[in-house]
Nucleic acid binder design. Structure first.
Length: 127
DNA sequence: ACCGTGACGGCGG
DNA sequence: GCCGCCGCCACGG
């Protein structure tokens, strides 16, 4: 791990706060750590600081992409699955909802838009 | 103090 | 929706 920098420590704390079954993007973590534009650096920190009792597997890339895990993506998927986070292909299913800290509802979730979207569909799917 | 690096992000093609 | 390009920032050499 890149020496105990204030930033790195904050990042690790943030990651520790991610509940099981939820996921956050590197950008989310960066923002939560107070540096919204430092997602890249967050990646570096995760790279070096993984095995340290931090649920780093809950940190994924933007748009629900899996991101990396020191070349051991299989493990990452397994860990996530163990917590109920399903990965389809290389994307987290239901990512919109599982996202942490803000499970923000889609901007255009107005009743009308929703109705039109689900109109020809049998059942509503996730995200 | 400068330069390259990367478990990234967004947008345009 | 995938691919590539450019932009971002903390760290280490």
């Amino acid at each position: 791990m890149p020496r105990d920098t204030e930033f790195s420590k904050r990042v690790l704390m943030v990651v520790r706060r991610i509940p099981a079954g939820r996921v956050a993007s590197y950008g989310d973590v960066a923002a939560a750590a107070g540096r919204p534009r430092a997602w890249r650096a967050v990646g570096n920190i995760m790279r070096t600081c993984n095995a340290a009792g931090v649920p780093c597997h809950r940190v994924i890339a933007a748009a629900g992409q899996l991101g990396g895990y020191g070349g051991n993506l299989g493990l990452k998927r397994a860990l996530l699955a163990q917590e109920g986070v399903v990965v389809r292909g290389s994307r987290v299913r239901n990512w919109r909802v599982l996202r942490w800290p803000s499970p923000v509802a889609p901007p255009e979730t107005s009743p009308a838009a929703r109705a039109s979207r689900t109109a020809g569909r049998r059942r509503t799917r996730d995200d």
